[in-house]
């Protein structure tokens, strides 16, 4: 879910402080929190408590498509040009296993990359962005209209900067 365009942003020097602020805000009933960071900090992930990505299913579908394509392609081309080689069957399944495996991994890899990049692009659509939070700071975004003293909580946990 993209983070809100309007609201409060707190900029932290370290992920532990940002995670502390998120935990307190969540505890006070604030919803729709999001963060931006230069690395995948586990503390932030745990504090935000969002579910694990289901990207694996997309990668699995990609891999299975590759496997099916490999089986279909090797079978079809062998039947299209039925040539006996070393007395092996026309459709030499055992020998084709290597092709099945390689195409399965190739399709899964390409699908995985596209899924990560397209999924990420969809996730960040329209959200706010702080330039330093890809470099050396952690930004916590709190949606507008959140209950409680958001600014004070962010500052108490060590936010270097709180902006609207």
């Amino acid at each position: 879910m993209p983070h809100e365009d309007k609201g409060v942003v707190g900029l932290f020097a370290d992920p532990a402080s940002a995670a502390g602020a998120i935990r307190e805000l969540v505890g006070r009933g604030v919803k729709g929190l999001s963060a931006q960071s230069p690395a995948p900090y586990h503390e932030l992930e745990a504090a935000l408590g969002k579910p694990r990505s289901r990207l694996g299913w997309v990668t699995l579908v990609g891999g299975l498509t590759g496997l099916a394509a490999a089986i279909a392609f090797t079978t079809w081309t062998s039947l299209e040009m039925p040539m006996l080689v070393s007395g092996k069957p026309i459709v030499s399944t055992t020998a084709y296993v290597v092709i099945y495996f390689e195409l399965m991994v190739l399709f899964a890899g390409i699908t995985n990359f596209i899924a990560v990049m397209i999924g990420s692009a969809m996730a960040r659509k329209g959200g706010r962005f702080h330039e330093r939070a890809t470099v050396d700071r952690v930004a916590v975004f709190v949606p507008a209209g959140s209950p409680g003293e958001v600014d004070a909580i962010l500052r108490r946990h060590g936010a270097e900067e709180v902006a609207r």
Partner: peptide, 17 residues
């Protein structure tokens, strides 16, 4: 590719990696 490092991006990235 427009990367921002939001938590939603990192969740996908970590699984993808």
């Amino acid at each position: 590719l427009g990367w921002r490092g939001t938590d939603s991006e990192w969740r996908r990235y970590v699984r993808g990696y």
